[in-house]
């Protein structure tokens, strides 16, 4: 399952990271080296093995469906690159 420049372009797009065309080949090489090493996992017989999705066996606790926090607008926008009147100012989303 070798990765080529086009795959890198597609994956970078999915990840919303701009990668210039000049970088795609070398990135493909780097990713192939790492993925090639990871292929080792194909040696393991995982037939019928449940995937491990949690590091400890525990059930997630439930809490009361109650408002416990709020009124922090100024704290929430304090680190925004742009904000106005307690709102985030973002680029135009709808063309």
């Amino acid at each position: 399952m070798a990765v080529d420049a086009n795959t890198v372009r597609r994956v970078a797009r999915l990840a919303r990271i701009h990668e210039p065309d000049s970088r795609l080949e070398s990135l493909a090489g780097e990713l192939n080296t790492i993925l090639g090493w990871i292929e080792m996992l194909n040696e393991v017989d995982v037939e019928g093995v449940e995937p491990m999705t949690s590091a400890v066996e525990t059930t997630l606790p439930l809490r009361d469906d109650a408002v416990t926090d709020g009124g922090n607008t100024q704290k929430i926008v304090a680190n925004a690159p742009k904000s106005a009147d307690g709102f985030f100012v973002v680029p135009k989303v709808v063309e």
């Binding site: 994956v11 993925l35 996992l41 995982v46």
Partner: peptide, 26 residues
């Protein structure tokens, strides 16, 4: 991020991510 996006992307999820989670069980 690129590796993570790749192994989670359509067509590769089972071969990479799901397999890795099963190996994690082992």
């Amino acid at each position: 991020i690129l590796i993570g996006t790749y192994v989670l992307s359509a067509g590769y999820y089972d071969a990479y991510y799901l397999r890795a989670q099963r190996v994690r069980t082992k």
